[in-house]
Design a protein around this nucleic acid. Structure first.
Lengths: 341, 341
DNA sequence: TTTATATTGTAAATCGGTTTAGTATGAATA
DNA sequence: TATTCATACTAAACCGATTTACAATATAAA
């Protein structure tokens, strides 16, 4: 329970002013013409006693915290967990720390979280924004804080963001299914107004339009209780037995979909072909392995953190950068065998 | 860019002292005999202008931060991501915030992270400790900070912890395999001195001993590069073709193992039976579905946060509590069909 | 008429740093 | 000799709260 040593203790031990110690520790010794001799003496003592500045006090005075606030939709979702992990690593190297939070796509919760982050004086924000958060984000930007979005963006707010080419991804996946001979292709997804979901929907529709195929769209409300996802999904498939292929809008609905399909005893890909957005072990290991649209997670994380660090390090208000990365369609058995056996 | 309003501003606006405002906002008005009239006036103004106390200043003065530091092995691992999520939710309800970090089981990194948490004045610690961290944890406890461990513990440090009954879990799973008629049962796991891994190993060995079966143990060094896990695993299986069942020590090595088995073209469960520790979608959806030892994630998270909150709220140094929860063996096809066809 | 006792509040110290505005000293210049 | 300048360092204000110790006034008791 020994009290922590403070900058005053250091100063007293050497019979100098704490100002001097502060200058030395902040690398301003030369600028402030502190003699090399004293600098060494201070540094030596600091190392010896293991003094570490209290960052609360520092932040209080400087207004900087070296903390980045990261708001994902749900940290237990592998996509977000992986991105978060990569961002954490990169930020750590640069001396920044991360506070994560899950928004659950809940606007009110997100507003509260932004409040908490402001409170903690985070230096920058990384977020996968929920809907109706435009005003709050604009306020952040107005107050000079860098904000980088990912996974989706707010069309009416001018910020940096990193997304993937959602529209082309689903277009491409749907065309792939069409070329394999499937014609009653369903798009099953969570109901959402978010840009990434709208784009995925458009890609699907556009691909069908080229061949004048009829769309089969099922939107399901998100719920953390899996049963409430599987139920309507199952009902939809039962009601539309003609469907011969499904494109799932996200990994989560994809895994739920697989469970339902297994329960119903439908055979993949003989009875039905499957493609899912996002690619994880589940899809690779499933038998038959599931064709999936893989997002370039490392590249996404790298770009996010680079954008943010650039803004943090040059406090100038540069123009915003909007980065769109491409995905990879990992073709596997679930959509490969031709229909006509 | 309007400057944030401070307690002094509030005081000035009402021509009173900031002391009074502070007392009112901290619910000490009665104790300090502030008139009900003034209390209402202050609360009204505070609400009107949306004043929020600067928590850095507050923490600096009080030494409390209302933040809990959570150190997991790897936030991108579903077990830890799920636990983290549940803890975050519970803590949030109680007014606490969480800072997570991944230790990678790296002692030096963990020490640094502890330093950063101390620096941020976190009020309590939740951790899945790496090895050789005993001294640092003892220091934390000595300085009066509550520490709760989970997933594993440090035998030589007296702290609260929440774990599962690892030894019985693998014992039980192995007995299950033996009862199904398998006799050359391998235990494939990460090499580790951590308690949970040692216990899992013991459970396996004890189960074999009862029938005097020969153990087949393969320990693989952890690496974030999956190929470096799959390679030795594959080599081991090729070198020991007699193995008719495998118990995997963790979910991660389990999924790697499934990939290898698929690559090698081995049939499950005809050629080989599979059981894995931890249960996730991958195992349920795999064909054939994989028998797995499921940890009670919600109960683990609930117990962790309850223990910590109890310590935080009563600053007395009660005796420590060590909680061991039981797992469930979810039996599925991969280990169900009898050997002798 | 004093003296105690509530009542209602406040001034100033404090937490641990950073930053601004100087000070003291000796050497160089006018 | 008086003035400037560079050198080496520091006192005090400040960030925004909490907390301790006390002040001013009115009322009740002695």
């Amino acid at each position: 329970m020994n009290k922590k040593i403070s900058i005053v203790d250091i100063a007293n031990l050497l019979n100098i002013s704490k100002t001097t110690v502060s200058f030395i520790l902040n690398g301003r010794a030369q600028e402030k013409r502190i003699s090399e001799e004293l600098v060494q003496k201070v540094l030596k003592l600091v190392k010896e006693v293991g003094y570490k500045p209290n960052s609360l006090a520092k932040s209080l005075r400087t207004g900087k915290s070296n903390i980045i606030g990261l708001m994902v939709e749900d940290i237990s979702n592998p996509f977000f967990a992986n991105i978060a992990r990569l961002i954490e690593d990169r930020a750590y190297e640069k001396g920044y720390r991360i506070i994560y939070c899950s928004t659950d796509n809940d606007t009110a919760k997100t507003q509260e979280l932004i409040g908490m982050f402001q409170d903690r004086h985070v230096d920058g924000y990384i977020m996968a924004p929920p809907k109706d958060i435009e005003e709050d984000v604009r306020d952040l930007i107005k107050s000079g804080l860098p904000v980088v979005m990912f996974d989706r963006y707010l069309p009416n707010v001018d910020t940096d963001y990193v997304i993937v080419d959602n529209q082309f991804s689903t277009y491409n996946a749907t065309r792939h299914l069409i070329e394999q001979g499937y014609s009653k292709i369903a798009f099953i997804t969570f109901s959402s107004e978010q840009t990434q979901m709208l784009d995925r929907m458009n890609g699907y529709k556009n691909a069908l339009k080229e061949d004048k195929l009829k769309p089969y769209i099922k939107e399901i409300d998100f719920n953390r209780n899996e049963e409430l996802i599987k139920e309507p999904l199952s009902a939809y498939l039962k009601k539309n037995p003609g469907i011969d292929a499904i494109l799932f809008g996200t990994d989560h609905i994809g895994t739920c979909g697989l469970k339902v399909i297994n329960q119903l005893g439908v055979k993949v890909p003989d009875d039905i072909a499957i493609v899912s957005f996002d690619d994880y072990d589940v899809f690779e290991l499933h038998s038959p392995s599931v064709t999936a649209i893989a997002q370039p997670i490392e590249a996404i994380a790298d770009n996010i953190i680079s954008l943010l660090l650039k803004k943090l390090e040059s406090n100038s208000n540069q123009t915003t950068q909007k980065i769109t990365l491409s995905t990879t369609l990992n073709m596997r058995n679930s959509s490969q065998q031709a229909l006509k056996r």
